[in-house]
């Protein structure tokens, strides 16, 4: 623990996913930013080294590409399968992303419905198995369900990414106990994905033992995205250090921090 704390303070506490190392434990999404310029400023302020994009039909009227921003900032691209409802759709989207972007990494999302955007566990496992078999590095967006997380790891996923609360909700980490259970038994990185609202949510996720946090809306739809991105960067770092430092136990009653010995008592 002591050694880890020291290395973290020195800034060499790297995140390792599938053998690749990242200096930042904040993974960003790019959805929701009002402009490419605002997005670029926010990504720079976040310090992220890995950032998601979605795959959509080409728009002949589109000006500027999110890929140009990521290339300029030397940020690794992580395509997602957002909007897919079945394993078949997700697998095809991942294969198109691999072809278009030259990466075999994929953030696997298979959602059950548009109202909750919650993952469909059955389709998710099916898609994860198919993609692992096809040679992908699969990072699945999953429910905060320890059993499902274990199954995803067993089929070969390179990380598990449980939600803190529904996508875009800003409700934070609604079931910290389940996140702790996932962290306790995971043999792959645990990345808290979805639901983060503000910096303290990101810090809490890291204090619970998550290896990284993935967020988008909390930054891109904040009043000042770049300022919130900086806050998230610090929140993730603070939570990570606090986790490594080993927090004090919670007590029901006060424990004086000043000594009782030598106290002067007026007669």
């Amino acid at each position: 623990m002591t050694r880890n704390t020291t290395t973290a303070e020195q800034g060499s506490d790297e995140l390792v996913i599938a053998g690749e190392t990242f200096g930042s434990r904040l993974i960003m999404g790019t959805g929701g930013a009002p402009s490419m310029h605002v997005l670029e400023e926010a990504l720079a302020a976040s310090g992220t080294e890995l950032t998601t994009v979605a795959m959509r039909r080409v728009d002949p009227a589109a000006r500027g590409s999110v890929l140009d921003v990521l290339r300029r900032r030397e940020i690794r691209v992580l395509p997602n399968t957002a909007g897919c409802f079945t394993a078949g759709e997700a697998v095809l989207t991942a294969k198109l992303a691999r072809e278009a972007l030259g990466t075999n990494w994929v953030k696997l999302e298979v959602i059950a419905d548009e109202r909750t955007l919650l993952p469909d566990p059955v389709e998710l496992i099916d898609a994860a198995e198919q993609l692992v078999d096809a040679g992908f590095v699969v990072l699945p967006y999953t429910n905060d369900d320890p059993v499902l997380a274990r199954r995803l790891e067993q089929v070969g996923c390179a990380a598990v990414m449980p939600l803190g609360s529904p996508i875009g909700s800003g409700l934070g980490v609604r079931n910290p106990h389940n996140i702790e259970l996932i962290v306790e038994s995971a043999g792959v990185p645990v990345i808290l994905d979805a639901g983060i609202g503000t910096a303290s949510d990101a810090a809490l996720a890291m204090e619970l033992g998550c290896d990284a946090v993935l967020l988008a809306t909390a930054v891109t739809r904040a009043q000042s995205p770049a300022t919130m991105a900086a806050a998230m960067r610090h929140g993730v770092q603070a939570g990570r250090l606090a986790r490594l430092a080993g927090r004090i136990p919670v007590r029901r009653h006060a424990q004086a921090s000043s000594p009782w010995a030598g106290l002067s008592r007026p007669v």
Partner: peptide, 27 residues
Amino acid sequence: VVPRALWTETAVREADRLEVLTAVQGG
């Protein structure tokens, strides 16, 4: 998926469905 290397030699047929995708802001 049609790999880019095969685009010039792959002809489409009546009623084929072609999807052309790129990366956009998301996630």
